[in-house]
């Protein structure tokens, strides 16, 4: 293998020693999360001009398990609770009830331990866009505790694998295409050798070529990294191609969970889009229209 390829063995060597040996990477038990939205026009002297708020149940009694090394897909229309689940797993959100553990650590109590194992690629690349890819990666390496030289070597190697040359690596990110930015985001996530990678709609809004590049890179990661991957996506083909199992989520609840073939068999169809429509009552066009309105 060349130096540009990520070695599975070296990944295993980097595996944190305090990572439990249990086959379960994520255990989600009866997790619920409610947000409170202000009601427009409800401010009055009676409520001290604070206004009224209405509850919005984002995740409702959700339970599932994800096994180590698995690629687990979360499919659902906008507002179904996918992103809330990802943010709960990212330790950016606390659940209202239930128990959510990542490698045996509780997201409500052990955030610092969990953060050492995870990294995330979100739908919008969260970068300092005025800074170059290398500057952003150097920042990431420092806050993830990587030695500078190791961080630099890893960053250059992954960037090179993704077709980002030295010159582009030192260009301000705002001058790179969305596809290129998303590749840098993936490079940044992998640089820290996470044991759990959260891919939150990594290909949404990308042109077909960039989308294919990113998907191929995710496949390479699956083959070469010893990581568990959670993937949320709006792309049925992508979900079918990449995921070992898929959970379909709607109105904050998981309505089906199985392998792609299992879901198709269950619904009695050969199309994942048909599966999605039958289980959520929403056509794919509706989902994409919702997305365009956001």
């Amino acid at each position: 293998m060349t130096t540009q390829t990520i070695e599975k063995d070296s990944e295993q060597a980097n595996r944190p020693s305090d990572l439990p040996e249990s086959p379960v990477a994520i255990s989600c038990r009866q997790i619920s999360k409610t947000f409170y939205e202000p009601v427009k026009g409800s401010r009055s002297w009676k409520n001290g001009f604070l206004g009224r708020k209405r509850p919005l149940k984002a995740v409702d009694q959700v339970s599932f398990e994800v096994f180590q090394g698995e690629v687990f897909g979360l499919l659902g229309p906008n507002g179904s609770g996918k992103s809330t689940l990802i943010r709960l797993l990212s330790t950016l959100l606390l659940p209202d009830s239930g128990r959510l553990t990542v490698f045996g650590y509780d997201v409500s109590k052990d955030q610092h331990q969990i953060r050492r194992f995870i990294n995330r690629v979100s739908v919008e690349a969260s970068f300092f866009k005025k800074l170059s890819a290398m500057e952003n990666l150097r920042y990431a390496a420092r806050i993830y505790g990587l030695p500078q030289e190791e961080g630099r070597e890893k960053a250059l190697s992954i960037l090179s694998r993704l077709g980002i040359d030295q010159e582009k690596a030192h260009t301000s990110l705002e001058n790179l295409s969305r596809g290129m930015q998303q590749k840098v985001a993936i490079a940044r996530a992998l640089m820290t050798s996470p044991t759990l990678v959260l891919l939150d709609e990594p290909t949404t809004g990308l042109d077909p070529k960039s989308k294919r590049d990113v998907q191929e890179f995710v496949e390479e990661v699956m083959d070469t990294h010893d990581a568990t991957i959670i993937l949320t996506t709006h792309d049925m083909d992508e979900a079918e191609r990449l995921c070992d199992r898929i959970a379909i989520i709607d109105h904050g609840q998981i309505v089906a969970l199985d392998t792609p073939q299992g879901l198709k068999d269950h619904v009695g169809t050969n199309s994942m889009e048909e599966v999605f429509f039958r289980l959520t009552g929403k056509s794919w066009e509706d989902v994409l229209a919702d997305e365009n309105h956001e």
Partner: peptide
């Protein structure tokens, strides 16, 4: 404003 708040807050730093 930069859109990095989630990335920074989920990093394993005190």
């Amino acid at each position: 404003w930069e859109g990095t708040i989630e990335y920074t807050f989920m990093a394993p730093i005190r």
